[in-house]
Amino acid sequence: MREDNAVNDMQEKLVNAGYIAERSLSSTLLLFTELQRPLLLEGDAGVGKTEIARVLSQVFACPLIRLQCYEGLDVNSAVYEWNYQHQLLAIKLLEQDHVSAQNAEQQIFSEQYLLQRPLLQAITQQQSPVLLIDEIDRADEEFEAYLLELLSDFQVSVPEIGTIPATSRPYVILTSNGTRELSDALRRRCLYHYVEYPEFDKELRIVNARIPDIGPQLARQVVAFVQELRKLDLRKKPGIAETLDWAAALLRLDVNTLDSDVQTIMDSLVCLLKTREDSYNLGELEVQRLMAKAV
């Protein structure tokens, strides 16, 4: 029973921080905090992967450090960089003071002139932060290999100063959208959770929590409509963010129930359908069918 309580606690904390999670996710997150392994989150875009990291930082009351990956990400923008401008100015000043070259070198290559980028920042905090490495699949393999090394040793070596050991172990969360397949080594090192599109009940709770003004009837219809929409063969399925956008848009348009005006609904679908093909393929008849089902 004790363990169940722990999971319930976690779930409750997440809800208080504004995130509605299934029990299985709460259980994984609990484990994640206990095992101190990195957590790899996968799932379609818009299911709330990034949000989990933000909420966790709130639950632990610790800073969130985010590293957005992109192709060509390198050590200079991920780990550290020297502050060249400062160094040059310092050299000028030291020249005036007639400091010996050796001393000068020691001075300008000190931590004072080191710019910390997210990864170095994450391991030198007083308190363990949540480190979010977003869309790791966008970075290239070389960076992935470097990350693996960092995640096992928790230290960074800077040739000019030496090794900087970690003062705290960050909670590492990685997210991936499957742009390319990740290496087995990285996958193996991580806990794994696949975040699915939410079930009807969960999505309804999310909509109610985020847009309190929405009436119970419209909320129910909106969620039912989106759930049906996801079953269609779309190129880009709407995520939770899209559902929320759409609900807010409908509120703005003074729509109280989905069975009102087809044209208004059609116009508001720009919130849900994000590619030309999808909005082209979804004709009025199809929308009416979905609306009838949702109502």
Partner: peptide, 29 residues
């Protein structure tokens, strides 16, 4: 450690815990 943390008697939590630990891609999941 997962078993110790989840409790061996709680099959649902053990399932979730081991799933998070052992899976590494969607097919595994």
């Amino acid at each position: 450690r997962v078993a110790a943390s989840c409790g061996i008697m709680n099959s649902q939590r053990l399932r979730w815990g081991l799933r998070a630990l052992l899976c590494s891609e969607q097919q595994d999941w």
